[in-house]
Computed example of a mutant assay.
Amino acid sequence: MAIDESRQGLPRCVSVARQEFAERYWDRAPLLSPGLSDYLDLLTLDGVDELLGGRALRTPFVRMAKDGHVIPAARYTGGGGAGAEIGDQVHDEKVLALLADGATLVLQGLHRMSPPLVAFAATLRQELGTPVQINAYLTPPQSRGFDPHYDTHGVFVLQVSGRKRWLVHEPVLEAPVPRQAWGGVADEVAAAAGARPAIDAVLTPGDALYLPRGWVHAATTEGEWSLHRLLRRRSSHRPGRPPAPRGRPARPRRRRPDRADPAPAARGRARAGVNQSAAALGPAPAARARPLARPQPSMPRSRLAV
């Protein structure tokens, strides 16, 4: 499928202009953007079929989980056949059996194997000034793959098909860094998940949700299969330090041994860095955030949804 360059990048992830996103939301607050794009030029359920049945995928490009527990890879992988000296090739029939039992399928690293997503990730990297990783999540009806948790990186959720209810809660840690994974504060995360959510919304095809690092979230499918993509902000920069705007190398900074963790103070610098990147891009297309409540259309099921 030909890639429409005009439909690439940040305007497909958020419903506000780049400048507003940089100033109000980047690494600061979640943003729900209903009815933004159909995303079918990037990945479809048929595309998931093709990846499972025709690419000889191996771990760790595939993970599976159910009700908050990661499923051991041995339950859906095996040998590659006569003469193939590998033991971790994904077997699609085992994956389909686990899906039928309510498990969630995670396809990881799609920014390396799917040409439309390779181009999409490259465009976002230019706009955001930081590498992007793309995963896809396929979940059966009335199912949940993961318990409430937070990530130590920002994410964009793009709903491809089906309906998925997202509950988003205030952070328990301010801008956590990779060494502050949610498992170390599991009790606090569970308590936050029991409070009134900041966002309670059902994502349907074309909706997008931005979550800064640290915001507690969980998602459950409704009465049909759900496929969504998750775009992770990957960075090789040290925790809390913003990526340099394109064309301007970051200046090295020394950190005193007795200095406290810099993440809270650095959030403002991160937004400033994205703000400068947005300015370099020129004016963005006019966009407007839409209200949360709207009709929820249904989607036809594909082969995987039988």
Rank of each mutant, 00 (worst) to 15 (best):
L203F: 06
R75M: 12
K66E: 09
A279G: 15
R259W: 10
V168M: 09
W182P: 01
R238K: 07
A136Q: 05
G79V: 06
L43T: 06
P115Q: 12
V106G: 01
G54I: 01
A244I: 04
D88L: 01
V118Q: 14
N275C: 08
P262H: 09
V306G: 14
R259S: 14
R288M: 12
L105R: 03
P242H: 07
A198S: 12
A284H: 03
R255P: 02
P72Y: 08
G81I: 01
P283L: 04
G268E: 13
A272R: 13
L105I: 00
R229V: 12
D92I: 08
W26A: 06
T130P: 01
A74H: 12
P72R: 08
W26V: 04
A201L: 06
P116E: 09
T123S: 06
L167S: 07
S114H: 11
Q126M: 10
E23L: 15
L42R: 04
P34N: 10
A272T: 10
R269H: 13
I134E: 00
S226N: 11
L227W: 04
V177N: 05
G129L: 03
D49N: 10
P252G: 01
F61L: 11
D4A: 12
F146H: 14
A17M: 09
Q19H: 08
R55F: 05
M64Y: 00
S6T: 15
L52T: 08
L209I: 00
A193D: 03
Q19G: 06
V90H: 08
S143W: 03
H153M: 09
L107N: 04
G282A: 03
P249K: 06
P212C: 03
Q159W: 09
L230W: 02
A82P: 13
D92P: 14
R165H: 15
R256T: 09
P178C: 05
A175D: 05
L292M: 13
P205G: 15
G154R: 01
R196P: 02
T152R: 10
F156T: 11
P264K: 06
R196V: 11
S298W: 05
P291M: 08
K164R: 15
Y210I: 07
A22D: 02
P300D: 10
Q19L: 11
L31N: 06
E5D: 10
E50M: 07
P171G: 03
F146L: 15
P30Y: 00
I199R: 15
A136T: 04
F156E: 02
